[in-house]
């Protein structure tokens, strides 16, 4: 076997049949792991407070709407798979409604006039709170 002769062996020929299996398994492991990049900090439950006290704490796994009474009227919280939002609020500026869906641990929507807040809690919250 001379050096010159070996250099003619193409790179692909160096990969044996079983190697392809290992490459395939490794590549699919990489593929499967990719959603992890975006899953971090996923919220697990919604914590609804009224007048600073916990009104209700619910898991984010099933869809439901929760009316929360306040001094101005009723704030409606909507829970859907993995996320929650303030669907309607009697407050004048509607900041908490316009915030839209919350899904990451630490996110919070505050309807100050009606004294209602919706916070997302997770297994390990990366932040104390997230506000926009």
């Amino acid at each position: 076997m001379t050096l010159a002769a070996d250099m003619t062996v193409p790179w692909l020929r160096l990969i044996r049949p079983g190697d392809w299996l290992v490459i395939l398994a490794a590549a699919s492991a990489v593929g499967v792991s990719f959603p992890l990049l975006w899953q971090g900090g996923q919220g697990e439950r919604a914590i609804i407070r009224q007048e600073g006290r916990v009104f209700l704490e619910v898991a984010l796994d099933k869809a439901r709407t929760i009316p929360v009474p306040g001094p101005l009227g009723t704030t409606v919280i909507e829970i859907a798979a993995g996320r929650a939002r303030v669907a309607s609020d009697p407050g004048p500026r509607q900041y908490c409604v316009r915030q839209g869906w919350l899904s990451r641990a630490g996110e919070i929507a505050i309807c100050a006039p009606n004294r209602v807040s919706l916070a997302i809690g997770g297994g390990q919250s990366p932040y104390d709170s997230l506000n926009y």
Partner: peptide, 16 residues
């Protein structure tokens, strides 16, 4: 078995 698995397999196992 060496006939089926070569250094590429070893290398991948080791790197992971």
């Amino acid at each position: 078995p060496g006939r089926l698995f070569g250094p590429v397999s070893w290398s991948l196992l080791a790197s992971f």
